[in-house]
Design a protein around this nucleic acid. Structure first.
Lengths: 166, 166
DNA sequence: CGATAACATATTGCGCGCAACTAAATAGCG
DNA sequence: CGCTATTTAGTTGCGCGCAATATGTTATCG
């Protein structure tokens, strides 16, 4: 009979945890964005939604949700707030009354210009040189995070891990 | 007079955004942890708190908050829930009635054993080899995130960026 | 000692995320 | 056609994060 392999107690030390680094970095980024987004009247998740709509509007709530990995429980109230603020319009599709299509209003489109400088401003505040190898390192970090996300989503979908004997 | 330097419209494309990759990866990680933590009766932020307390209890709410970059608005209700679940005890410091010190109960300590295998299990589910160079790449990712967090916190503390002329 | 400032935690309010469930519309099938 | 299954949003409930504020405690200064 096999004993479950022993686990080092240090496995749970906070500073060893990728999970904690990721959790903290994500919150730090949201905090850093907040003062830049406040003048536009946007929260950070609202800004993420606007990034998609600025690329092209008219998509449905579920298409937006697929892009962002968010469901209607999050998006519906968020989009209603954007609509209340006059930035977004929600219209039922005439051919399929189930789907709600999302459109930018004039002021929603106008926000795009004011948002353009935000990523650069944030990178600058964080001390990244705009043209240096720092850009390359940011890209590598982004790719590593995307790879991690893919693996984690697979892990959530699948169940368990292979045991000792196949 | 200098024009503000033009910004590429692609600056706002979603797939170019480190911020989106980080936001998505953080949520994916929380989702991946959730089925492993549910048997312990812990949410992901509660697990992060327990990681600190397992390293040593008796610390104050503000010390815990400094470690996690969380304030009492988040921690107080979270800790009350842990106390209601019989995992943590909150005691006012006898020498300073302002501070609340946090202690593990017996069942809180007992949870530690059940939690030890979680990081490895998750790494395995995500397809990382436990002893391969994959471990090294996870460490590099963690260090990159920690460096980013430090820079972002500096950016949040400080104000603005240097202009074109010093 | 008494007033006041500084400090530690608690409370309130709001906006996510997400699970679970509901409601309405369409698709598909006998 | 009628009935069920599927699809799409919306709703509810709960637990964060975090800003703003309140409450109670200790320190400081005259």
């Amino acid at each position: 009979m096999k004993k479950p392999r022993p686990v080092e107690p240090s496995a749970l030390r906070l500073e060893n945890q990728l999970c904690f680094a990721l959790y903290t970095a994500s919150r730090a980024l949201t905090r850093a964005y907040q003062p830049l987004l406040a003048p536009l009247g946007l929260t950070y998740p609202q800004y993420i939604v606007m990034l998609v709509l600025w690329e092209g509007d008219g998509l449905s709530v579920s298409q937006l949700g697929a892009r962002l990995a968010l469901d209607s429980g999050t998006l519906t109230p968020l989009l209603k707030r954007l609509e209340d603020n006059g930035i977004v319009e929600r219209r039922r599709d005439a051919n399929d009354e189930r789907v709600v299509r999302l459109f930018l209003t004039a002021s929603g489109r106008a926000l795009h210009g004011r948002a353009l400088s935000i990523p650069g401003e944030l990178a600058c505040r964080a001390g990244y040189e705009p043209d240096a190898a720092g850009l390359k390192s940011l890209n590598r970090l982004r790719e590593a995070l995307e790879a991690l996300t893919r693996r984690l989503d697979d892990a959530s979908t699948g169940r368990g891990c292979e045991a000792d004997d196949p």
